[in-house]
């Protein structure tokens, strides 16, 4: 084994050389700071620093599991993230395919550019508008809510996963479509031509050529997103929900939960502990999934 590896190092030395800048960067900026993970197990004292602070084992993790709600928030986090990733991917792909099928007219290019606009509006600002949007006294949304028997959107927690999904899709889908558009652009046109000669309809082309060609991109992006399934929700959820406890049962996520708890009395050690918890679970999930993917398609896995 080692023999094979060493041979490869020599044979492909120029390629390995190409990896050096990135590896160096990773070493300095990603691996060296990892020393900070020890803070999760320390009573961190800025004066004593990372290597001098007192070691307290798992104490920093206690606060999170103290409340009864850690299970609910973990579930919410995973559920909401899966919702966003799942529907988001679906919608992004759909949009990308549709746009690529419609050609290159100015109108289409214009639409492409417009679709990414919401991505540039930060969540706090979206939050400002969401209030006006959800509490409007007239309009279709209001009619819908009345039909469902809801008087005040901000007091009804059950509909909020849908509301959050809606906002997530609005903000991210257009932008997410860019990647798929680029991937589709890279598909060999010859394939389509050959298929058309064989009499395939447009829909058949999409399902038989486009989608399979996108497969590796879709899988890879999904795998990459999987790692973050236990985190990454603070900006969005906090901007839209704030401290509205009526909505907590379905919208409180690990990030917002911890944020509230540590707001007044927090410490670096505790936030680091939670981050570690989120990382570890995400990591396990991705490693398992990656192994699974490798069994079916060796080239689509991350590692």
């Amino acid at each position: 084994m080692k023999h094979k590896g060493l041979r490869d190092l020599v044979k492909n030395r120029y390629i390995y050389l190409m990896t050096l800048p990135a590896l160096l960067f990773s070493l300095i900026f990603s691996y060296l700071p990892l020393a900070g993970i020890t803070m999760a197990f320390q009573d961190f004292n800025p004066i004593k620093g990372i290597f001098g602070s007192e070691f307290i084992g798992l104490r920093n993790f206690e606060f999170f599991f103290r409340g009864r709600d850690w299970f609910t928030v973990t579930f919410n986090t995973v559920f909401l993230n899966l919702l966003f990733i799942g529907f988001g991917t679906l919608l992004s792909i759909t949009l990308a395919i549709m746009l690529s099928e419609l050609g290159k007219s100015l109108f289409v290019r214009g639409m492409q550019s417009i679709m990414i606009l919401p991505n540039f509006i930060s969540w706090p600002i979206v939050g400002l508008f969401s209030v006006a949007f959800l509490t409007a006294d007239t309009g279709t949304l209001d009619g819908l809510m009345k039909w469902l028997g809801i008087s005040d959107a901000y007091m009804e927690s059950s509909i909020w996963p849908v509301i959050l999904l809606f906002f997530s899709l609005w903000k991210g889908t257009g932008f997410g479509a860019i990647v798929y558009l680029a991937a589709i652009a890279g598909i060999d046109r010859g394939l389509y031509e050959a298929a058309k000669i064989d009499g395939a309809s447009r829909l058949q082309c999409i399902f038989r050529i486009t989608l399979p060609m996108l497969k590796s991109t879709i899988i890879m992006l999904f795998l990459l997103a999987l790692g973050g399934i236990f985190s990454g929700t603070l900006d969005m959820v906090y901007s839209l929900v704030g401290d509205n406890s009526f909505l907590f049962p379905t919208t409180d996520t690990i990030d917002t939960y911890v944020f509230r708890a540590l707001r007044t009395q927090g410490s670096f050690g505790m936030s680091q502990a939670v981050a570690l918890y989120q990382s570890i679970i995400g990591f396990i999930l991705v490693v398992l999934s990656n192994q699974l993917v490798k069994k079916f398609d060796k080239d689509s896995s991350i590692f």
């Binding site: 606060f63 409340g67 009395q265 505790m270």
Partner: peptide, 11 residues
Amino acid sequence: KTEMTNPSFAK
């Protein structure tokens, strides 16, 4: 410190 950071207080 640990007791004070019980998230139930914030809740």
